[in-house]
Computed example of a mutant assay.
Amino acid sequence: MRTIQAPEPGGPEALQIVETDRPVPGPGEVLVRVVASGVNRADVLQREGHYPPPPGFPDILGLEAAGVVEELGEGVSDWQPGQECLVLLAAAGYSEYVTAPAGQLVPPPPGMDLVDAAGILEVAATVVSNMDLVHLSPGEVFLVHGGAGGIGSFAIQYAKALGCTVLTTAGSAEKLDYCRTLGADHALDYHEDWVAAVKEATDGHGVDVILDIMGAKYLPQNVRALAKDGRQVTIGMQGGRKGELDMGILLNKRASIHATSLRGRPVAQKAAICARVAEVVWPMLADGRIQPLHTERVPFGDVRRAHEMISAPGHRGKIVLVMD
């Protein structure tokens, strides 16, 4: 079968189509014939050599896929061959076939095209699990950085559906307008003093919860932007790994900082997160509280172009690789 790997770290040109044996589902696993694969910024990091798969997993890119159940491993009874599914993965989503524990499969959202759905599970699982962690509640003020990207596009809508006041940052007028169409109450240009803009927009209250993809670069500003008893959860390091933290400000605000990663979680945790997404998010998609993400479809063999697109300044929403 065809897979996509980066044998040597580098730019999009490092991506290669590599033939490998089709995997065989073990006990408790399901073999899925992939129809489309979601493209995520974590894939770019892996291609560059900064984010290898967890031990024991193949060096094949891809954290999510949509497809059809092909074969069941021993002990699996809640899926049947021929059923459509979405699957959350630690690796190997960029493949014609993939195996995963049965608990990491969910049915696609009702009425949603399977290819478009290929790009929703990883972002939904990331946002929902982290907002559960910090107990984002109705009436709170929420900020997500990078509002036009896959995580941001979903997080804006999810927080709004929960009844929060939503702020976001982005880097162009076009992206800021896009964030407003998703429901952002305040869309702030990160080239400007966005911390001051947060204070003004919230009448000095600050932000109760920050979902941060930047890491070190925004750490001091995020702490200043937090409200009393505020919570920050960092899920990415696009702005570096090591930053300066003013513990005095943090203590004075009784604030907290969390850092989490979805990829390496134990199977039981991933299964619980997948079930939570289907329980909470699928009804929001069904009744329109969350709109499907803007999705760009790229042929599987044109993966290099997909990686160029996700890193381009004008990128918004999700990109999915579609099998021939």
Rank of each mutant, 00 (worst) to 15 (best):
L226I: 02
G206A: 06
M237Q: 10
N222Y: 03
A225E: 08
L219V: 12
I213R: 01
V223Y: 01
G230M: 05
N222D: 07
D208W: 01
E244I: 08
K242I: 15
Q221H: 09
R241Y: 13
Q232P: 02
T234P: 04
Y218M: 09
R241M: 15
R231Y: 01
Q232S: 06
V207T: 04
K242D: 14
D203W: 03
H205F: 07
L211S: 04
A216Y: 10
A201Y: 06
M237D: 05
Q221Y: 06
T234N: 10
G206P: 00
V198K: 03
V209T: 02
G236T: 06
Q232V: 05
M214S: 14
T202D: 04
I235P: 01
I210M: 03
D203K: 13
M237F: 09
E244V: 13
G240A: 11
T234E: 07
L245P: 10
A216L: 12
V223R: 02
V233T: 05
K242W: 12
G240S: 08
R241K: 15
G215I: 05
G240H: 09
V209Q: 00
H205Y: 11
D203S: 12
K242A: 13
V209M: 00
A227K: 08
D246P: 15
D212C: 02
A201G: 05
R241I: 14
D208C: 01
L219I: 13
L219S: 12
V209I: 02
V198A: 04
L245G: 10
H205A: 12
Q238M: 13
V233L: 00
A227F: 07
L251S: 09
V207A: 05
V233Q: 00
V207S: 03
T234L: 08
V207L: 03
G206M: 03
M247Q: 11
N222T: 06
G230F: 03
